[in-house]
Amino acid sequence: MRETSFTKVQLSSLLLLRFLVGWHILYEGAAKVINPQWTSLDFLEESQWILSGFSNWIISNPNVLSAVDFLNTWGLVAIGLGIITGLFFKAAALAGALLIFIYYLNSPPLIGMEYALPSDGHNLVVDKNLIEVAALIILALFSTSKIFGLDAFISNFKRKDKLLNE
């Protein structure tokens, strides 16, 4: 990345992607905060493939389930805020990628896996979750937050520190 240098259009596109993904994640979280009825129970009940055992364990423990609900909801909000504002951006983007990858693993559209919950469009192996994961990884690798984000203040502060120490 050292030598990477971007045109304005390229940079704007990266920024646009960042805002779109951040918006989506933030609203996923906010909608859950607003809706007191929301629980991950229904989603986890549908879990198939490699995480189904883990999901069943969560469902069978009411305390674990409510902890998972809490962490998921506020995790999404924190990740969304981090991505949009560009604060702790890399950590937020990677955490988001991991979280959404877990969603993907719970209900991957693989051949032979059928879900009672309606799916979002028609998917085979790849679904929108997986694409969002990839987008987040790219965003983390091509981080724009040190220019267009609160991380700029952090790096500025660090640089100041470094200069003072020199």
Binding site: M1, E3, S5, F6, T144, K146, I147, S155
Partner: peptide, 23 residues
């Protein structure tokens, strides 16, 4: 631009107004 966020800063500590707005 590179993405380190340093391209539009000089080597002086402190941030220009333009940098802050962008941030």
């Amino acid at each position: 631009k590179n993405l380190s966020g340093d391209s539009d800063k000089n080597n002086k500590p402190g941030m220009s107004r333009r940098t802050v707005v962008k941030a």
